[in-house]
Design a protein around this nucleic acid. Structure first.
Lengths: 126, 126, 126, 126
DNA sequence: GTGGTCTAGACCACG
DNA sequence: GTGGTCTAGACCACC
């Protein structure tokens, strides 16, 4: 379970956990109906409070990305990838907003294109 | 002064105020050594507590973007634009990170380039 | 925690608190990633308003000397000592300026050297 | 009247004016019983509020460094240099305190001695 | 009038 | 429990 969180990040820990799980699903490391670690297990592994994992799992379930089977465990929803893809479109819209702000402060189109290029190269490798 | 803040936003009010001031400086609406509204004036105008404005102004001064003259007022620092430009570069690095994450979830390079195009168009008009 | 502030001093309380923390880091009493007292705890101990401590801590964080983990606490930044050392160099430059002014009013080099000697003796003991 | 003040300095303007006059007396540019500029004149020259000059002059008179002759003007006291020299001793004590603090943060005696050397050289030239 | 500091008390998110 | 934000109102120094 290649999950890691940054405790110094301003981003809440529970959100980082949820994001990481989404990433594993998006990259195919976690397939449909595959089981994800229990709250207790993941809490021990990441050395953070179980409540934090619980909150992350609750948000994932609310979004329809996972489903729980009482007494058995949690599993990746069949349509998880679709939901995550939709979220990606929303984040893209936010990115556009950030970029247009940067343009106003003097960032050129060329710099943005270079950044895209670097991001694609970096993201493709990983 | 063309400053407005969104009280619904999760972003702290004081940060929004600071951002708006930065924007005015970046776009050239506020030049070097130009006076900015007093704490009380802006507080009245935006209908928020003076301490919140004070916090915004303190952060700007800590960043070297403005300077205060006791009993007189606050002014835009001569090297404010340079500092803001530097910040832009840092935000660009963060954007790259976000983009590489999106690439992993299936966003294509073409979609990113379209987003850049839209952002430049939108940012250039404003 | 061996922190004490002088309420009579013209120096703001929040700055005194920040200075004391820096001193503890500089002397090694507080090591990297070590936790510092919570806002409320220190406020009770020093019998001043929590907001004043908060202001001190915010300034330390802005300077990169500490970092906060939401819901957990504040910790000494790994490069805190380096930052404090840099600040020391800046204060040294200010001291030089003060000294050259004193020289103009008739203070001799010998008197300055005696002062340095006394300061080193005093500072070394503490 | 080689007087200049720094409006961006955290040091109050009236104190800067008083300091500058002290400096002129200490260096001998202004001799005993010599007349100093009127409040109005100096205010115009420095382009600052007359009240500020007034405050500076009041503090100088309270310290016995100048004396006023009603309807005529203000003049340097005969014992002005002595008073300023005494003040220098007090500032020296403050400097010692600052230096001992710096020593605690890791500044070495050698660095301090170098600083003294530089200050003497710089102050002697001026 | 200006900025700066401090107090008191409230609310929220995070863990 | 932690830190972060916001409000309300007070006092001070400076110009």
């Amino acid at each position: 379970m290649l999950i890691s969180i940054d405790r110094q990040s301003p981003r809440p820990a529970w959100q980082q956990v949820a994001d990481e799980l989404c990433r594993l699903v998006a990259t195919g490391a976690l397939g449909a109906d595959e089981q994800i670690p229990s709250v207790r297990t993941l809490a021990l592994e990441l050395a953070i409070n179980p409540n934090t994992i619980q909150k992350a799992y609750t948000s994932l379930e609310a979004a329809g990305i996972t489903y729980a089977v009482a007494g058995v465990g949690r599993f990746v929803s069949p349509d998880a990838r679709g939901i995550i893809a939709t979220r990606g479109q929303e984040r893209l819209a936010e990115l556009q907003h950030s970029m247009s702000e940067l343009v106003q402060t003097g960032i050129t189109q060329e710099q943005l294109l270079d950044t895209v290029q670097a991001a694609v190269t970096k993201g493709g490798q990983a």
